[in-house]
Structures are given as C-alpha cells and as structure tokens.
Amino acid sequence: MSFFTSQMRSAFSTSSCLLHIQTCTRLRVVDNSKIGKEAMQAGKPPKVIHVYNKKRKADLGDRVLMAIRGEKKKGVVVGAKHKVQEVLRPRFDSNNVVLIDDSGNPLGNRIYVPLPMSLRAKKDQYNKLISIATRFV
C-alpha cells in the first residue's frame, strides 16, 4: 500500500503555466480612456510593472502599475484568465484592466465588458468605477 501511494505522488510540482498576472504581463484596456484606446489600437497593450499586493500576482480587483505609451499609469484588474478556476469566481477569456488615477477614479467614462460582482465589495475604493460599469457578472 505505501509503495503504491508513494509511486503515485510526484516529488516536484508538475503544474503547467498558471497564467498569473504579474510584472511584464500585457493587459487589455477595456475602457474608453484616450491613452488606453491609443495603446490598444497601436498594438502595444500596457505592460504591468508592479502589482500592489503582497504576493505580486494580481487578481480581480487588485491595483497594478503599468507602462503604457511611455507613461506610468495605474489600473484595476477587472478580468483574469486564471488557469485554476475557483468556485463563483468568473474566469474571463482575456486579462482586462481599467485605467485609474491615484485616487481610484477611472480615466475613461465607459466600460465595454462585464465586471466581476466581487468588485462591488470595494465600493469605498472604486465607487466611480462601479457607477460607470454597465454589466456585472
């Protein structure tokens, strides 16, 4: 019995690429801010240069610092294609971001994709962002 079980367990992790949002990840801007639109049209989506949490891996609702058209801008991750799906956490087909300023106000005034419902829990931080969103999932 012990021989069988020790054979079953591997000595090292064999998980494949986990598709985390971390530094050097390219994100898709989903609002109508000027700089965001220009970046997406030019074919140079923003690149994450810092993730504002302890783990340095961004999840839904986390703030990130991005390099976009030569400028540094902050953003909120509103869509993530995690490899490992969790119950009741929506899995998007693309890693989406909404550009914000330092106080949490969005730079654009329209959002083109549905946002995760878990964002509504952070009402005090992202009040304006929630108000311009049209759809929650």
């Binding site: 969790e86 119950v87 899995r91 087909d93 693309s94 049209t134 999932v137």
Partner: peptide, 24 residues
C-alpha cells in the same frame, strides 16, 4: 461535484464554476 457554465457576454467570454451541492 462541480459544473462550469460558459457564455459570451458583451463580446467577452466568461466561465463560472459552481459546486452543485452548495447551499448558496
């Protein structure tokens, strides 16, 4: 037991995973 639903909502593909026996 879990099941996953997929849909395209406003041109964005979204998947949701559910525990079948969750009381939620």
């Amino acid at each position: 037991h879990q099941m996953a639903l997929r849909n395209i909502v406003e041109n964005e593909g979204i998947e949701m995973l559910y525990d079948l026996y969750s009381p939620i």
